[in-house]
Design a protein around this nucleic acid. Sequence first.
DNA 1: GTACCGTTTGGAAACGTTTCCAATCTCAAC
DNA 2: GTTGAGATTGGAAACGTTTCCAAACGGTAC
Lengths: 362, 362
Amino acid sequence: MSQKAKTTIKDVARRAGCGIATASRVLNNSGPASADVRKRVEKAASDLGFSFSAAGRALQSRRSMTVGCLVPSLANPVFAEAVQGIQEVLSGTGYQLLISCSNYDGAADNQAIETLLAKDVDGLIVTMVAPDRSAALRLAKARNLPVSLMFHDPIDGLPSAHVDNFEAARDVARQFAALGHQRTAFLSLRFASSDRSRNRYAGFHAECRALGLCDPALIELTEAEAHTPEKLAQILAQLDRATAIFASNDFLAIAVQKAARLIGWRVPDDLSVVGFDGIEIGRLLDVPLATIETAPEAMGRQAAETLLKMTQGIAAPQTPPLPYHFRTGATLARPGPKIHDDDQVAPWPPSVLSLKTDLKQG
Amino acid sequence: MSQKAKTTIKDVARRAGCGIATASRVLNNSGPASADVRKRVEKAASDLGFSFSAAGRALQSRRSMTVGCLVPSLANPVFAEAVQGIQEVLSGTGYQLLISCSNYDGAADNQAIETLLAKDVDGLIVTMVAPDRSAALRLAKARNLPVSLMFHDPIDGLPSAHVDNFEAARDVARQFAALGHQRTAFLSLRFASSDRSRNRYAGFHAECRALGLCDPALIELTEAEAHTPEKLAQILAQLDRATAIFASNDFLAIAVQKAARLIGWRVPDDLSVVGFDGIEIGRLLDVPLATIETAPEAMGRQAAETLLKMTQGIAAPQTPPLPYHFRTGATLARPGPKIHDDDQVAPWPPSVLSLKTDLKQG
DNA sequence: GTACCGTTTGGAAACGTTTCCAATCTCAAC
DNA sequence: GTTGAGATTGGAAACGTTTCCAAACGGTAC
């Protein structure tokens, strides 16, 4: 029953009564062959159920026809959708996708790229903690391996499929300002390991300042806090003078609303909330979520297309940032009565819980 | 600048002044070597930044150290999380994950497996449209390749990491019945290409009947209908005598609520809604979603663990279905006044929109 | 000094391809 | 019947490993 022995091109050649070289030429359509032998080889191949060995090919051609992809986590739908986009572009090109997750760990990160390199990938599509500081990524560049980033601002000459987080965040500040909010906060997960969050905060902060709002409070949540409404509610309670919160992703924005309900705040009357990413569920909610709408799948597609060009030797074109769109929603309104008895601007933020990393210069 | 030439073990051997075989033994710790030569080889390798060529290794050892994974789509968080689970188990084992998406297409499906096989994967983790009818999957079995399923009921002797959709769906029927619902409907996407949906419907149907409820109406939605609340609302309106809807996933359950609002129905007063999957956002909603909670990540982990065992030659243990859990929520209540002026049971369902595939036998 | 045993060592084959190049074949023109 | 051009063909090398096996070496016991 164990029909283990894979059939090789040698078997095909023998059965067709020709040389290996000829069989190879026929099967690849890569050289001359008489109609006669051509037919024999094709028959033999199909009789034997022959298929090429990727290993043999890779060794000989020095191309693995494989693209490596590193993302922080597939449990985050944003990255999952991006990978789906990559898939769509790659499928049909003959390239296969080798995938790896870092779980937001800056060391695992680098290690994963090394592993991918060792697999002889023909290209790399990467979102990592600190692409500018990755030794493995530098090595890839030194080897002239095509590399395409996702979600990051372009770095180091590497093309990146991304949205301009800084600019998008400024939009949010403008929306808050237009409605009359003064005191705001920025909520984020893993501030230290996400340049996206940092850029969003930087843009938000810069625009708040430019528009004369108080500097936003910066709150970095632990995983546990984000997923436990009660804990999140405690944190929110300490921000009782904030009237508007910018959450660095939609999931957080939804969690914030739950937490707000727990301490008796109404959204948007007592607290306005804006998210980031634009996941579809946000639109379907009872109280539709205001957010920055992005297109992660398009990012994946763009990154893959850029990479394909590079593998063909076409110089990596730096693509402009992808468009984003402020989607308004019922979570956004003028500041309500919660603070209306206090019209004098007090020192703020009351407590910056943590700010572990330098911010991008606005 | 183009330091293209990858260093091979031959380079290392030359620099260390020893034979290739010796270098290989040292680097793999696979045989004897004097302390002296060992040190020289290690130094040479690190000086040269040597790393093994996966292609060479794969060719010689006939193992690619690669696992292929096929899922319908990564845009569905359920599958994305499962893949994340696989990743977690695989990382550190030396195996890499080659990923492929079928987009719910039963032909692409089979094709994708063939491609994966051609890549010489050492194992396969699969969720597909019709695993029992896939020629490529049969081929894999014939080649003695370890195969592990996800989400499917075990088929054909292949182990599968799954939940018992049939049983879980019966739970939902019981909940509806306990609250006094009589007329229900089952909403699904891609009924034809998802045995999960079919099994859920079958279980739901069987238990409704067993408990004396009306047979549930079966509604298969197109992608467009599911994502356009207005269209969904029209469909819902035709079901105006249903008091409870079982949606075959949480996204759909949330969309149904939006659609219900559009036609002035309140949830749960006018309509009870139960989902499936148990995505976390459901818990955080203003009206927490009643649903069957499952653990896709655990399914991925289990599938990967089973596969690893098989690659080690351990006989594939058929694992029992993973646990699920009925999570109640505010979308579930006794039937409200919408039908209270009609206490005589009329023929039902009024319109079964489509039922394209045989149902699993209850 | 010789014989023997155990430890290290490296040459060479094999894995499945592709491709270079020389050999063979076909056929027309002389 | 030769010759040469052009079309086919297949042997062999190369890709980077691992591993078999025989050779070389180091030391001990006689």
